[in-house]
């Protein structure tokens, strides 16, 4: 169990070194220095970039400043995805630090949601938790919680308080022992090149005949192409929190320990490197 707790800590305190650079299209009064930041993997872009905004606004005329958004190699970064997922999905295997362009104009409405304030992020975060709990416990746990318990989850994430968050999140991870897991595993499988934003289906942690489902079983059912065939080179990487767990890992354990704070297991399937 001590190992499990360490895993939770490592997942929570995962950081990505990021270099924010003002895009060349933006008009400035003087040259803008790049801004470096260690982004928490489990947080959201717009929640941790107040400093970035302040830094770049200093060199800009107030009139030119609209809603801030981020771009990586031509892709607008969705703030409502966790940062770790954005990095794994778009920038795995590239040189660190992660280089992101900052924009203050031409907000890409078709790609991004507006994020006028932190309350919008909170609403999105809580809706994710509720959706996940609906899958795991038919929503029983999250509905039993009081308003202040919900607030504690959110404040834990917002202020990067591991203990505060997990004191409450622990309840969301409980399940009856005789069931050997959640009702369904809340997961989402993302691909960088896909028409669909993600794959999300009902998947039980244990098969009807009592066999424990693994990450491999999940992928076999959702995205068979992600699993390397015998005698073939690996074509895809399955990345969660910047690592590739073994396919034999039980999906229930993954859901309990490698889920993001929104209680979803965000899995990125990215093309394997050629070399």
């Amino acid at each position: 169990m001590a190992d499990d707790k360490d895993v939770l800590r490592d997942v929570w305190f995962g950081r990505i070194p990021t270099c924010f650079t003002l895009h060349q299209d933006e008009v400035t009064e003087r040259e803008a220095e790049p801004f470096y930041l260690l982004l928490p993997r489990v947080s959201y872009l717009t929640l941790v970039t107040d400093k970035v905004k302040k830094h770049f606004q200093k060199v800009m005329k107030p009139d030119d400043v609209e809603e801030m958004w981020f771009e990586y190699e031509g892709t607008a970064l969705k703030w409502h995805y966790p940062i770790g997922l954005l990095y794994d999905l778009h920038a795995s295997n590239t040189a660190l630090p992660w280089s992101i362009f900052v924009h203050f104009k031409n907000f890409p409405l078709q790609d991004l949601l507006h994020c006028p304030s932190n309350s919008v992020i909170e609403a999105h975060f809580m809706s994710c938790i509720k959706e996940a709990d609906a899958l795991k416990h038919k929503g029983a746990v999250v509905n039993e919680m009081q308003k202040k318990d919900h607030k504690q989850l959110w404040m834990g994430l917002q202020n990067d308080k591991f203990d505060q968050f997990w004191a409450m999140n622990r309840k969301l991870m409980e399940y009856p022992i005789e069931e050997r897991g959640f009702r369904y595993i809340p997961f989402r499988i993302y691909q960088p090149t896909s028409d669909r934003p993600f794959i999300q289906k009902l998947f039980r942690p244990v098969s009807p005949d009592g066999h424990v489902h693994t990450l491999g079983d999940l992928l076999k059912e959702m995205l068979p192409a992600a699993i390397p065939k015998d005698n073939e080179k690996k074509k895809y990487q399955v990345v969660i929190h910047g690592i590739e767990p073994m396919l034999e890992t039980p999906i229930q354990w993954l859901s309990e320990h490698l889920s993001h704070p929104d209680n979803f297991l965000h899995i990125s399937i990215i093309p394997a490197q050629c070399d």
């Binding site: 895993v7 490592d10 997942v11 995962g14 690592i243 767990p245 073994m246 890992t249 039980p250 354990w253």
Partner: peptide, 12 residues
């Protein structure tokens, strides 16, 4: 698998 994950996280 557990050790693998722990190690990978540390490496990451």
């Amino acid at each position: 698998w557990k050790r693998h994950i722990a190690e990978q996280l540390k490496l990451r």
